[in-house]
Design a protein around this nucleic acid. Structure first.
Lengths: 224, 224
DNA sequence: ATATTTTTTTTGACAAGTCTAAAAATAAAA
DNA sequence: TTTTATTTTTAGACTTGTCAAAAAAAATAT
């Protein structure tokens, strides 16, 4: 087994190298874990000795195959627990992260697999992020940032890029929950903001920042 | 917040002093935590500095009011998670202890209270042990060891003293699950074993050891 | 009342994980 | 290409939690 600290480092390395598409830097890891670069260097040495990462001094770090497996299993647990917290315990999508950060460290394959079954083998978590299966396989689906849609395009909200409480609560207020349908009515080139029509013909003004952090599955472009 | 190690010590002190009815000794704690007396002494010093226990060298240790609260909250969490694991995830009563040992350390009052509600505010866990409420109040109910029943007495299984996997699996095999009705048909003074009649007029021979570890709620004594 | 055994504490050491401050390596700028 | 700035690593220290071995206190036996 690995310590919670080790697991948190592996998860950070996973998400950084996935996002940046290259080896994770010491500073990037330090920023994500909320610690110092010195502590990161120390931990990288230990993780390297355990063959969980490929680490060259001053050259960044990537996950080994075993490290990748551990990180994937953690993300699976994290997201399944988030589904449980929202679907079964009635928390909102902005309240579950901290609990899931703790629950993901609970050990035992039987537990996570039974939880998966209990929840109906969900493929996506409450934020629209995919949940890998027990073999580490991911479900992919086409989605695009709302910012990339053209006037007249229609779509359904499928996920968020920004997972902050503030953003999630803002989306709740605007009714932009997962599954919400919307249509781009007008784009303002001046500030890249959009006017969109959503359920009940309600119209919303969405800033560029919002559109850059909201994923949608596009439907057939309206033909009127 | 307290570390998991601290929480485990507090829980051990709680259960030892409850069972023995007096201050917990260093050796007793060491045996329960599976560690050495030296480590226990060290930890007692730290817990004492945090005013979680009343500790006098060589005189054993009892929980302070705040330590008592922490221990009670831990037991509440442990037992609620056990209910979840059995009722919702379908584990058997002999499989849930290790998972609950981990889950009880997850922090956050909102989580445990929502879990409690989701489970229907159960008052007893899958082993028949009482679950304290959010204010730390316990539900009491009359129960007695099967060993104390007389010939002709009838009862319903309400709990176990021994929580070992071996005992719980043995009880499953004999159909002696919580709620099972039974009647003492005959007592053998030679080895204090009992012959009991249970559901479907099935008869079982139960050793003294079994009878000393099984709690029952007694019904009206049969009058025939 | 003294000797012996048991229990508990102290001592010193170790591993994991963290930090600050300083040194070394790399990247960027002049 | 040399200088400067940034990033990363090293060094030394601290905390938490653990242990084995030795010393001290308490309990038990003679």
């Amino acid at each position: 087994m690995h310590s919670q600290a080790e697991e948190n480092y592996l998860k950070a390395i996973f998400s950084i190298s996935e996002k940046e598409g290259k080896a994770a830097s010491t500073n990037a890891i330090a920023a994500m874990i909320q610690t110092t670069a010195a502590s990161v260097t120390d931990m990288l040495r230990r993780l390297s000795e355990k063959n969980l990462i490929a680490y060259e001094k001053y050259r960044g770090v990537t996950l080994s195959e075993s490290g990748h497996k551990v990180a994937t299993a953690l993300i699976r647990k994290h997201r399944l627990w988030e589904v449980f917290l929202v679907e079964k315990l009635g928390f909102s999508w902005d309240e579950v992260h901290e609990f899931a950060e703790q629950l993901e460290h609970v050990q035992g394959d039987a537990l996570v697999n039974r939880l998966d079954k209990f929840l109906g083998n969900p493929k996506f978590d409450p934020h629209g992020d995919p949940i890998p299966d027990a073999q580490g396989r991911w479900t992919h689906r086409p989605q695009a940032l709302l910012a990339t849609l053209q006037t007249g395009d229609r779509g359904v909200v499928t996920g968020v890029e920004d997972h902050s409480t503030a953003f999630l609560q803002y989306l709740d207020q605007q009714g932009l929950i997962l599954g919400a349908a919307l249509e781009v009515v007008e784009r303002f080139p001046y500030d890249q903001s959009l006017r969109v029509r959503t359920h009940g013909d309600r119209e919303l003004m969405l800033s560029e920042k919002v559109c850059q952090n909201l994923y949608v599955r596009t439907l057939n472009t309206s033909m009127d």
